[in-house]
Amino acid sequence: MSFGSSHYTPAMQSLIDEFGKLPGIGPKSAQRIAFHLLKLPAEDVGRLAQSITHAKATVRFCERCFNIAADVLCPICADDRRDSTMICVVEESRDIVAIERTGEFKGRYHVLLGAMNPLEGIGPEQLKIRELVARLGPEAVEEVILCTNPNTEGEVTAMYLARMLSPLGLRVTRIASGLPVGGDLEYADELTLGRALEGRRTLET
């Protein structure tokens, strides 16, 4: 491919190259974004540049749960109204946002920053598992909910954690698997449908 560098000024080329490094952005999209920015008023571009540097400078990991935070603790860990006896273990801080949107969970979280993947060489040491264990006593945790992704890596991680945490005498639960609301039964795969049957419940009448 020839996105001839000679056709742009060095400043423009470097902007396009930087956008091109972002996830899901190819050379064409990078070029489109760069040209769009040039059309914007200077203050809009300034605000964008400032948001990027500001976010990068101030956002960090919560010292307790490894959620992204603006301070030492993330807003959830800093909130006294949250139930500290329940910890929901997730892979990424994005997952917290998804769970928070349900409004069903009032406990605290712990982000592992990944999942075990033996084929990639990611083991328990690369995840924030030691930090999770260290929280259990001081925070008087009674239940750990394993909310890792329902794929092979997430399942392996959950099973590993269950094996490690169960002897500690607390309740270890795994988020349920089932059919997505709005989907068709006939398209469900066997594993999901099997689990959905296994986890069936009595209807309130």
Binding site: P118, E155, V156, M159, R163, E190, L191, G194
Partner: peptide
């Protein structure tokens, strides 16, 4: 079915190997 492979940590790790 994949179910038995993900039914225990031992089976999952052996399967991965």
């Amino acid at each position: 079915p994949l179910t038995p492979m993900l039914s225990s940590l031992d089976r999952a790790t052996l399967g991965m190997a």
